[in-house]
Design a protein around this nucleic acid. Sequence first.
DNA 1: CCGGACGCCTGTCGGC
DNA 2: TGCCGACAGGCGTCCG
Length: 271
Amino acid sequence: MPELPEVETTLRGIAPHLSGRRIHGLRVRQRRLRYPIVTGTEAALAGQQIQGLRRRGKYLLLDLERGGLLIHLGMSGSLRVLPEETPAGPHDHVDLCLEDHRCLRLRDPRRFGIFLWTPDLLDSHPLIRHLGPEPLGTGFNGAYLYAASRGRRAAVKTFIMDAKLVVGVGNIYANESLFMAGIHPSRPCGRIGAARYERLAEAIRTVLNKAIVQGGTTLRDFIHEDGSPGYFARELKVYGLAGQPCSSCGDPVRQRRIGQRSSFYCPRCQK
DNA sequence: CCGGACGCCTGTCGGC
DNA sequence: TGCCGACAGGCGTCCG
């Protein structure tokens, strides 16, 4: 999916079009997403003003007058801002229509995404409450990773992809961060020292920030609110590059499965 | 508590 | 050419 940089890019793209605007209505073409869009969501949203937009991990949060809207892009979701009469494609499941005759349109072929209104505070929602710290915020550093990993045996790649530990790091950026830090993805997380965790925390921040600057990574489905792609795919060092020479040493990049996810690494540069 | 496997969906690609 | 399995950016849930 959309990992943190793609969600952040989406937030920056849509926020100017939505912030302070009033919701005119909701058009739902497909209710069956990760969680069904319950009947009554339309009525709950109609007429509400969007007070502000935020990102928490890979979730987009729209604060409303009553409660809030929680949006997740799953594996294949994207959001566009369009004139509301723009014909919808086969996977355009939801339009959040505004009073200016434009709409926020959710496209999500695989339907792992979430579009959920809650009358309560967004931060206390069960999907949000237990999330770990933001990797680009305070409270995330090498000492935190080191302390949290003591006594655990999971592969470090699985470890940093756990949203209860730190949010926003998905499969692409986990692979890229571990390459930048020179750490083998299958190394048990509890057997990595404090100094290497400092390198890893720094690598995660650097990779995510660079990806945001490039507007995220477009592999297949992800596009910006205006339909344009992100360009970080050009800067990937290992993800999707099995058999290609490592940009650092020239040895072929290797691919294997770790925790049911494809993993890419250089066996010579990552120990 | 932890770690691993599974399922939710559709589209695409490689092999036979 | 067609079919079939594997795989794809996530993550909640279940089980041992």
